[in-house]
Design a protein around this nucleic acid. Structure first.
Lengths: 331, 331
DNA sequence: TTGTAGGCGTTATCAT
DNA sequence: ATGATAACGCCTACAA
């Protein structure tokens, strides 16, 4: 049962003023080591926990950060969000903050709005960014410190992201290094920033190898199974030796399409993916992929947000926390 | 930019006391309709939002509920958690509450403890229950209102769960109705409450049909791919005509095992699962499964928790919100 | 119907 | 080095 002890109780019990107790706790202001120790001991002994709400009222802070979770996440995105949250949680816990979750509805961002207007958070992590993101716009207007996970053309946003361009460039380079010359690139949505970023990395690898990527082999609208099947047929007809998929979802669908068409992987065509997951590891054949440390993204985002809240001015960060996992599909 | 307007500002601007304003907002206490309207108008006009922290301090409430999320969720469990959270969010948003997330670490529940000791929540939803759950025990001791999702033998806990027993009974009945007599049941962990519940439902279906389930065909330790493969061999050797898997993870592994062994589904053996997902729908063949409305579970849990917080005494609830989706694997 | 004053638990300011 | 006192923004007896 949580004791309802207050700072006054301690002050009275120890015969000091509550100001002194407050100072002993926060460590601010001049105070003798002796009384500090005495007070800290008492607190320890009686398991006193300060009332964070009251402190918040006095300091105009909540010790909460908001995390915005898009509701339209597909099943494939969830592990990312979960691991990301894990990273955020580590940082916030260590800093004495907690996480207020804001589920984003399709209609708008009323949940986020409530949190912001009610001043229930000191800052916000936006776990996904769109090209013209109304949520980011709203947060900007609100004046609240916030960081976004993902990249944005808006230089005013503090962005935390992986260096997807380099990651994709390296993966592509590896395939080129295996002697393949005709590689297809398959993405889901040409409106997404990340799709463009990955395409650039893909092309950069060709340039680095003194080659040129065939534009006809770049497919950016693989948004369903049928599209993927059609793309496979087209790519093979054009002589593609390898297919690079932008995420595990596409990779999984592509593998299924190959199976359906009787195309053998890796004998007839090699397969690689830009985002790793259990699914790719467990599939047969296992699929080569870029593995990103999602936890670290969350970790960094939270860390950066806290700095922002503390008044410092951290910049955007593009992490190199990926590694390429070679599997059967590119043997 | 959030205005820093306070209740005093409004009082001054309107030439009334802040008590009056407070009453107009809360609707408590006698107050003339005229002034109420005047105040409400002013609030609307100037987009005033009360400071929830201050209100919390005065009322000893936070208008937050804690949601405990186990960190060891596997990828297969995430959609459940996400949909569940969605349901919770609907209820809390409508009631003016927000969600404070507590990620459960392997080592303990320090995150939860912080939230509870700091009095940052008015209640807690525990999204999973174990047989002897230290987290549930802790919450009990804390005296904070809380509900658990899932079933527990502890009658003191307010539990929200699906009626898994009946769901499993019905699924099994359907298979029996198709003329099969030898059915295997495959579960992951015989320590989990739900495993036992499902086994009971499975057996009940046999009893209802005037039959008896073969104990040798009940496997409750299918915790990895190898185990599943072994179980498949054993079950077939014992003449199993159908296999009922306790969750989609097992079902997926079982299907892979069948493929590996050259066992055709549904020709050689039928397959069904107790928990539906995209994975089961997209696999080939698609797998018959019990489909549960996770969102509703979260919805009900949150609703019940709020009642508990309001001082009422709602009981446990076992929802019948499942349906059985027949697919190719049991044709 | 409305206003006054005190309290919620903490921090911050200014004395001492 | 320590204390008294006033914020912080809202709620709520109790008074008027």
């Amino acid at each position: 049962m949580p004791d309802k002890m207050t700072i006054d109780d301690i002050a009275e019990a120890l015969g000091v003023s509550k100001t002194t107790v407050s100072r002993a706790i926060s460590g601010k202001g001049r105070i003798s080591a002796a009384t500090t120790a005495r007070i800290r001991d008492y607190i320890e002994q009686h398991n006193y926990k300060p009332n964070v709400v009251a402190r918040g009222l006095a300091q105009q802070r909540t010790y909460n950060i908001g995390v915005v979770c898009p509701m339209d996440y597909e099943i494939f995105d969830l592990p990312f969000f979960h691991r990301c949250l894990h990273g955020i949680s580590e940082v916030t816990a260590a800093a004495g903050y907690d996480i207020l979750l804001s589920m984003l509805e399709a209609q708008g961002h009323r949940n986020l709005q409530r949190i912001v207007e009610h001043r229930k958070v000191d800052g916000v992590v936006l776990t996904r960014t769109l090209l013209h993101d109304p949520v980011a716009e709203y947060l900007k207007r609100s004046g609240l410190p916030f960081v976004v996970i993902g990249s944005s053309p808006d230089p005013e946003l503090v962005q935390i992201d992986n260096d997807h361009r380099n990651a994709c460039c390296e993966l592509t380079s590896i395939l080129l290094g295996k002697g393949m010359r005709k590689l297809a690139l398959v993405g889901k949505d040409d409106h997404q920033i990340i799709t463009e970023t990955r395409r650039k990395g893909f092309e950069a690898a060709f340039v680095r190898a003194g080659l040129t990527a065939d534009p006809a082999l770049i497919y950016l609208r693989a948004d369903n199974e049928h599209a993927v099947l059609t793309i496979l047929e087209d790519a093979l007809a054009r002589g593609a030796e390898g297919i690079v998929c932008m995420d595990e979802r596409i990779a999984t669908m592509m593998l299924a399409a190959c199976r359906e068409k009787g195309v053998r992987v890796p004998e007839d065509v090699r397969l690689a993916s830009f985002y790793n997951s259990q699914a790719l590891d467990h599939s047969s054949p296992a699929i080569t992929a870029v593995d990103v440390d999602d936890r670290k993204i969350g970790f960094t985002a939270a860390r950066t947000l806290l700095e922002l809240i503390e008044g410092r001015e951290p910049g955007s960060q593009f992490l190199k926390n990926y590694k390429i996992i070679l599997r059967e599909s590119t043997m």
